[in-house]
């Protein structure tokens, strides 16, 4: 409990036990966060971004086709401005090529996006891959 007088507040000398309980639980939480982060800081190696694309679905849209995908960064460093290129190919012949840019793909995190094609991906080879990134 806090007493206010003349614009100054004075904490009470004889606090209720709940104040100590809250304080001790909070202290344990803060200690746990700091301990966990310190452990991670020592054990986690900084690895450069490692990007993997997984195609999720191919759907027809009003004006074309949508290929939705996941991009997963398995490394412990975030990649910025990640460009993903999607190609429809028939053997060596590229039928259509489109790209999309992710502002960020965070470390050990997943982002989702989609590439739109005019041609039907069915019957062609769909190739979606990350093309590059910058360090944030």
């Amino acid at each position: 409990m806090t007493k206010s007088d003349q614009g100054r507040h004075r904490e009470r000398q004889d606090p209720h036990w709940i104040e100590w309980l809250t304080g001790i639980v909070s202290a344990l939480l803060v200690a746990a966060i700091l301990g966990w982060l310190t452990w991670e800081a020592f054990t986690r190696k900084a690895t450069p971004p490692d990007l993997v694309v997984t195609v999720l679905t191919t759907e027809k849209t009003t004006a074309g086709h949508r290929v939705a995908f996941d991009i997963y960064n398995t490394a412990t460093t975030t990649a910025a401005a990640v460009t993903v290129i999607g190609r429809l190919t028939d053997g060596d012949r590229v039928i259509e090529e489109n790209d999309v840019t992710f502002d960020y793909v965070a470390a050990e995190s997943k982002s989702t996006g989609a590439i739109l094609f005019q041609n039907d991906p069915a019957g062609h080879t769909v190739d979606i891959r990350p093309a590059g990134y910058t360090d944030p």
Binding site: G23, S26, V30
Partner: peptide
Amino acid sequence: IGGHELEPETPWWHAFVRFTLPGYV
């Protein structure tokens, strides 16, 4: 103005544990 103070005989960590750490959480 509006700051908090402790009774002179209270150690500083009393307020730290009772108010500052719960506040941070």
